[in-house]
Design a protein around this nucleic acid. Structure first.
Lengths: 202, 202
DNA sequence: GTCTATACAAGGATAGAC
DNA sequence: GTCTATCCTTGTATAGAC
């Protein structure tokens, strides 16, 4: 394993354990038996390290969405997709919980407005697809409402999880919030859609 | 105005503008024409300053809830209460956006598990009261579901707001998320309850 | 009680030797 | 690619003036 990869793996581990702000570059270097300067060689700024981790997390999330769009839409497949994403978010929890630092870093790096627009359009496509497939019944402004719900819930379920129940194991945590998501979806599901959601209520 | 109050007011202003982590004790002192040591006299640790601000925010929130419980429950009055609280949260945005630091500070200071339990019980009381008053129709696990929704939404609407639309003015921001809340409530509202919610859809 | 001056430790970052 | 030495900023603490 290359030093660069070792640094990334170890950093994520430490960030997940103590939070990004609580882990210094010296901590990371020491825990790998490297000099702080060496770490600076691979990642000039702590920010560069974090950004690389963010990109890896995003790549995995994107893969899940691509998988979803590769076959016919159903609420069951939507929920499976979100399950994969929730687990992925859990694995990168350290990045998602340091909101403040994250926000600053991402705002500098990306055109964040465009990213947000894509994010919204993305979910809108998913929900309209589910309606077209007969899984959901969406009237006038229901799609907008669900998109707003999903962007907030999909981003902050993990923060809520670690704030309100810090000791909940990974599987239980994901199941708990997937169940909440399924309940919300079922409020707009057709009979067919409710059938599709059944496995998530057991 | 006493120095102590000046410090609190100015700190909140700076925290709201740049975030807690980006504002140092020296920044606060300089912007008030004080020495850093003087600030240390009034608040030995930055944490003490933040905790005092948190307590002020909580006191205001509590006042809104007390007002709600002082009269008969209705969805209209519930929404009015949340409006007051949302505005208050907006005014203290700097505290609520620095999640990571906040979490660490609060976990050290309070029995956070107990606080979370009270928070949940609190919303449960509100929703069961609304059901008893004929404003909502709650079946088997609907109350649990709404409590989970409300704790997450009530805590993170403001983060979502500043992440996804950083430039939205205060009034529009609060209206936007109150509307989302009203939509969610209306999914469980009786005819009477829907009537009560009408003003929030205009 | 209120404030200034100052010192110290820890963190991010960089320059330059090997 | 790796290391040492060094700089600057930040949170924190304290001695001592008024």
């Amino acid at each position: 394993m290359k030093t660069r990869d070792k640094i990334l793996t170890q950093s994520l581990k430490l960030f997940n354990e103590k939070g990004m702000a609580q882990v210094g570059v010296r901590d990371i270097a020491r825990s790998l038996g490297l000099s702080p300067g060496n770490l600076s060689y691979h990642f000039p700024k702590k920010e560069d390290l974090i950004l690389e981790l963010v990109n890896r997390m995003r790549a995995k999330n994107d893969a899940f969405y691509q998988q979803y769009f590769a076959a016919l839409p159903s609420l069951a497949r939507f929920m499976e997709t979100m399950r994969g994403i929730f687990f992925n978010q859990y694995d990168y929890q350290g990045l998602l919980i340091g909101q403040e630092e994250m926000k600053r870093i991402l705002f500098n790096e990306y055109d964040y407005k465009a990213v947000e627009e894509r994010r919204k359009a993305h979910f809108r496509t998913i929900f309209l697809g589910l309606a077209a497939a007969g899984e959901m019944k969406l009237e006038s402004e229901d799609a907008d409402f669900l998109v707003s719900y999903m962007t907030l819930f999909g981003r902050f379920w993990i923060l809520e999880c670690f704030v309100s129940t810090p000791d909940l194991p990974k599987d239980e945590a994901v199941d708990k919030y997937l169940l909440l998501l399924a309940r919300q979806m079922s409020l707009f599901a057709t009979e067919q859609g409710k059938e599709s959601l059944k496995p998530f209520f057991e």
